[in-house]
Amino acid sequence: MFDSRTVIETSASAHGRQAAGDRQPVTLRWLTLACLLLGSSAVVAQDKPTLNNLDSRLDRVERIMDQSLLEQLQRIDSLQQEIRGLRGEIESLNYEIDTLTRRNSDLYADTDRRITDLEEARDSLDLLAGEDGLGSGLLDETAGVGLDETASEPAGVFVAEDGVAVPFANDADFGDGPRPPTGALRDTATQAEKAGYTRAYDLLARGQNDSAVASFDDFLTKYPDGPYSDNAWYWQGEAMYAQRKFDDALRNFGVVVNSFPDSTKVPDARLKIGFALYEQGEYLQARTILTGVQEDYPGRSAAVLARKRLQKMDREGL
């Protein structure tokens, strides 16, 4: 790099050489000095940044920053889309979990109901099982069952339980239909009797409740004191309950409880009395009867169903 000091020293050196007898022409010396000054000015001009250079550099910096910012914004937008997608998946999973929870609850309730139905069907099949496929199971279950022949009231009258009045049925409530037995039950059944019971039960099993009620009416009118009588009264009550004829169902279940105290259908009949009272809005009486079923038959399906209905009543504040 050249500066003024260098030029002066060079000039002085040139004069010194002239004084020593250097014979270079004056014009050549001045040309040399001018070249040196021009070179020095060019170097100085290169070292100082110009406004155009600064603008160019600033433009490059801005382009770099704009590109980086654009990339960051694109990345943020992509992350937001992923977050929205994850939220959607979470909501979908929560919905599926809720659906599975409800489905499991429904399956549990349905399984419990099916178990109860199977137990009831098993009892009925036991009644129909035997050497010829009919009769002997019923005969074993009803052996020794009898009633006081001197009873002045119909055997279907309900009795009070733990001091709580329950629905009362008198003779008029049976209308033109069959009456409960007033004497000892027979312990054998004819083939016609077995076939009549099977026919009525099959109608009920197929969901033909109206026909089942009529068929059980015919059966009980013909065979009021037979070994199938308690089951016929119970299953006819079930058909009436399915029809939501709760008064008639209460009458039939009461016949089972009072006229057949040793029947295997008593726990279920008491349970259905509680259910029917619940459907009629008689919550206090329903609670009393269901509590009795739960306490008297621990481990039985009737006790389990009674407990579940009591829990439902607690949740409903009844």
Rank of each mutant, 00 (worst) to 15 (best):
L69R: 09
S124W: 00
A200L: 02
R75H: 12
V157T: 05
T10R: 11
P227T: 03
D268V: 05
G163T: 04
R307M: 04
R63E: 13
R307V: 02
D66I: 09
R179G: 04
T291F: 05
V164E: 05
R63D: 12
G130C: 07
R57H: 06
L79N: 09
R29I: 14
Y228T: 07
D225W: 06
R199G: 00
D112F: 06
N258V: 09
E82S: 15
I273N: 01
R113M: 05
L100A: 15
F168E: 09
N53V: 08
Y283C: 07
A169N: 04
P181S: 11
R251I: 11
T188P: 00
Y278G: 04
Q285E: 07
L134G: 01
I64G: 12
R270L: 07
A302D: 03
N258Q: 14
A121M: 09
F275S: 01
D268L: 09
N170T: 12
R199M: 08
G237T: 10
R75Q: 11
G144R: 07
G135T: 08
P181Q: 04
T101F: 09
A205L: 14
G137H: 02
R287A: 03
R287F: 00
I76T: 14
F253A: 03
E91N: 09
A20E: 12
D47I: 15
R199Y: 10
A155L: 13
D59F: 12
A184R: 10
E141P: 01
R17F: 14
D162I: 04
E131H: 10
P154R: 05
R307D: 08
R23C: 04
L147R: 15
N231K: 15
F2R: 13
L204Y: 13
D268N: 14
A306H: 03
E141D: 12
A151D: 01
Q236P: 03
A269N: 01
D55G: 07
K48D: 00
E89I: 02
V159N: 12
L73Q: 13
L305I: 03
D59R: 13
D225F: 08
D314G: 05
V304Y: 03
T291I: 00
Q67V: 09
N104Y: 10
G177D: 05
D202P: 00
P49W: 14
L250I: 02
Q236D: 02
D148A: 08
L51M: 13
G88S: 09
D202M: 04
D55M: 13
F168P: 00
K48P: 05
D171V: 14
A20T: 06
P178G: 02
V266I: 03
D210P: 03
F2E: 05
E295Y: 04
S136V: 06
V257G: 01
S78G: 15
W30E: 15
V255T: 15
G299F: 04
